[in-house]
Design a protein around this nucleic acid. Structure first.
Lengths: 203, 203
DNA sequence: GTCTATAAATGGATAGAC
DNA sequence: GTCTATCCATTTATAGAC
């Protein structure tokens, strides 16, 4: 897959994503990227045909990140057995930190959030990465929890919507302290509201 | 408060917000704004000292929008009496459409969402307009619902968090069709989960 | 694969006539 | 209050030497 032996191309992709996700595509110049990498701007054109092509390469790689995540998490799902109250919260925080707050995926989501209004392509990816992909996974997870009798019978898709709403809510307040703790509180209530009786009552 | 008799200043503010909220501050040039309004770019400098000052004026006006909204909605809150299942959903949709999807506020939120990563000022306003301000209002509303026996005793702040999470979730998928219908489904479940017994059971 | 040099276009902003 | 004309900095991109 690699076209260039040295890793300048790699560092360009990495650095450009970092800058784009912080300031937005238009606010970052080719010069900014070049100087951050430690080369001259003209050298960038040896690796990419232009600024737009660099963005496209970032988008292409983002698809790979998502596909890799999906493969890994779908595999974990098929092995899941009984889920306790603590397990449910722990895996929710794991999900927040290894998807939305993952260095690669989180920066892509930040970038897409900024570009979605001016780029139909970014809008499509944003909708897919922030909603469709995680929702499909969560729907499967809740269907599994219902099938195994851990959760009460319900619409798995609606449960996934409500779960996703809570995770996104905390994700978008990530500047505020202690996202994990806030999510834990909300997920605990979510679990108690939907788990099949057998768990002890709150407090 | 008005400094200039004609309304060119007004149209500049309106047009700039429209363009900024669609493409982002850096992607819009003074020329773009001028030609959209139908004047030359130099004429803008008669009304604003520069592009940044224009943005600041938009931010200043946004504070007025929010303050006006707060006054109006807080007044409505103090008059609220008993809330039926249908009322709860209707007022939630009203809230979505008259705050998050309001032409003025919605565009401000779009703009702030794009600029929050590069501008601390935008980040502060985003946090306040998307979370703090609506949450304070909702917390009061839920405290009222609990006090009047309509909702079961619970932490009004956490209920406000969960409610806000659902509304934001639908708001951010607003490109998808029928945001109101999707919100109605989620709010119906929310109401049934928290209302004090007396309402009929689902289905 | 990176550099210097430079072209060509676009951006924000000012001066001064009307 | 809007215009024409212009300035100057920045930006994307290319040409060609090393």
């Amino acid at each position: 897959m690699a076209q260039n032996p040295p890793d300048t191309r790699e560092r360009l992709l990495e650095t450009a994503l970092e800058l784009f996700s912080q300031r937005g595509y238009h606010a970052v110049s080719i010069r900014d990227i070049a100087s951050a990498v430690g080369i001259r701007e003209a050298s960038i054109y040896h690796h990419f045909s232009g600024k737009e092509a660099l963005l496209q390469a970032i988008f292409f790689r983002a698809e790979e990140y998502i596909a890799a995540w999906k493969t890994r998490f779908d595999a974990a799902l098929s092995q899941a057995s009984r889920v306790s109250r603590e397990d449910f919260i722990t895996s929710g925080i794991f999900y927040l930190e290894h998807y939305f707050l993952h260095p690669d995926i989180g920066r892509i989501l930040d970038l897409l959030a900024m570009e979605k209004r001016s780029s139909p392509q970014a809008a499509e990816m944003y909708q897919r990465f922030l909603f469709a992909v995680p929702l499909e996974h969560q729907q499967q997870a809740f269907a599994h929890l219902i099938r195994t009798g851990c959760f009460m019978a319900d619409d798995a898709r609606l449960l996934a919507d409500e779960y996703q709403a809570l995770v996104l809510y905390v994700f978008q307040q990530k500047d505020s302290l202690d996202a994990a703790a806030r999510l834990a509180t909300l997920l605990d209530r979510f679990y108690l509201a939907h788990c099949a009786p057998k768990e002890d009552l709150p407090k």
